[in-house]
Amino acid sequence: MNVFRLVGDLSHLLAIIILLLKIWKTRSCAGVSGKSQILFSLVFITRYLDLFTNFISVYNSVMKIIYLVTSLGTVYLMYFKFKATYDSNHDTFRIEFLVVPVGGLSFLVNHDFTPLEILWTFSIYLESVAILPQLFMISKTGEAETITSHYLFALGSYRALYIVNWVYRYYTEGFFDLIAIVAGCVQTILYCDFFYLYITKVLKGKQLKLPA
């Protein structure tokens, strides 16, 4: 555990909590992509199956359980409790175009051809593109609420911090995992356009609006 990894994990947790609080306080999930939230839940479910097979640390298990419960909670709020506020007309990304290729790739490129390892690989690849329905939705409506942009900034920062963590681990432990690194870089690159808008607009007190 190093500081980049820890701050990355906390940033990830902060993102999830920001989104949950936004939905809970406003009693609305307008502007949030339910499809991205379903994909993130699928990411956690397929990655954290090792909760039952492999104990690493109390921190590791507790965080896994928190991520699982909070992401499933978000999906519950969106598709059940506050379903009437869900903006499905603008959430039209076809997730099968992500899940099917990612599923195929995880069978072809993995560390070990075993069920748990393939599911772990699937979750890493899927996470890298799971935000696309949300970004697609923002590009369709042309704007995002400020609280939603804080959510996206915290979520994007998390994987960027993980990349720094992997560089650090390579130099201090000689450790690297190419699957995680490549997917993590793809994931972070997808946020670059958003990061630019966030820094130039949201941090200066303006709402995030795309040029018409």
Partner: peptide, 10 residues
């Protein structure tokens, strides 16, 4: 080891 290492991450 190589694979055990990544699994300590989230």
């Amino acid at each position: 080891s190589f694979k055990a290492a990544i699994k300590d991450e989230l």
